[in-house]
């Protein structure tokens, strides 16, 4: 039972409560750094590190932190992890760090992270909080990657820098520019909502059929 519960917390972040597709959180990095798959994954990993780390600390100390200063404490914890991620990336992969630029420090302001601390980590035991953070971060990573992959494939004819269509491919320049982020995100959200709509419709049909079956 216990195992199932934490598993459940992990899964919900990836699909049902996906931070991007369902909650539309964290739009700033989502649109800004997804012009290539590598950047998207680096951003996703950095966010995962910060989110899991701060959820762990916040949940562990949830009974120690007084509620009057909880937001300040969350921010201190988050900012510390962000700084650690910033310097680590700068030392290990300077190229990627240059591409991501100001958006690494801006993880502090990602409402996805503060939101999870306030809504979940500060109220639930450590194990569940970490699973929830992992799930949300994976959902965010999946969203970043799907956007980054689409934009890199169309905008550069490549994935992870490997050319897919040969040299004569005509790149869609707009996909690498900011408008491409909005367009791609819009189309992905469209499909996500269309899928949910169809699913609800289907469930409604099933329910109605069952009801009429029971009546008859």
């Amino acid at each position: 039972m216990k195992k199932n519960e934490s598993y459940e917390e992990f899964l919900k972040g990836i699909w049902r409560d996906n931070p991007v597709f369902a909650q539309v959180l964290g739009m700033c990095p989502m649109l800004a750094v997804t012009n290539s798959a590598v950047n998207a994954i680096a951003m996703g990993m950095a966010t995962m590190f910060v989110l899991v780390g701060s959820s762990f600390l916040v949940s562990t100390f949830r009974n120690v932190i007084p509620k009057q200063v909880r937001i300040s404490c969350f921010i201190i914890i988050i900012a510390t992890f962000v700084t650690i991620a910033d310097y680590t990336l700068l030392a290990l992969v300077p190229g990627v760090h240059k591409e991501l630029g100001a958006f690494i420090p801006l993880i502090v302001a990602n409402c996805l992270i503060l939101g999870r601390q306030e809504a979940f980590a500060s109220r639930y035991p450590t194990k569940l909080a970490v699973m929830d953070a992992l799930g949300m971060a994976c959902g965010f990573l999946v969203a970043l990657f799907s956007l980054g992959a689409v934009r890199e494939i169309l905008g550069d004819g490549a994935l992870f820098g490997v050319k897919l269509f040969g040299d004569s491919f005509e790149p869609w320049v707009i996909m690498i520019l900011p408008p491409g982020g909005f367009l791609t995100l819009g189309v992905i959200l469209l499909f996500f909502n269309w899928f949910k709509y169809k699913k609800d419709e289907f469930l409604d049909d099933v329910a109605r059929a069952e009801r009429s079956g029971a009546d008859g």
Binding site: E170, W172, V173, I174, M175, L177, P179
Partner: peptide, 10 residues
């Protein structure tokens, strides 16, 4: 506008 931003050379 979309085409101009997407395929500026063509």
């Amino acid at each position: 506008a979309f085409l101009l931003a997407t395929f500026p050379i063509a």
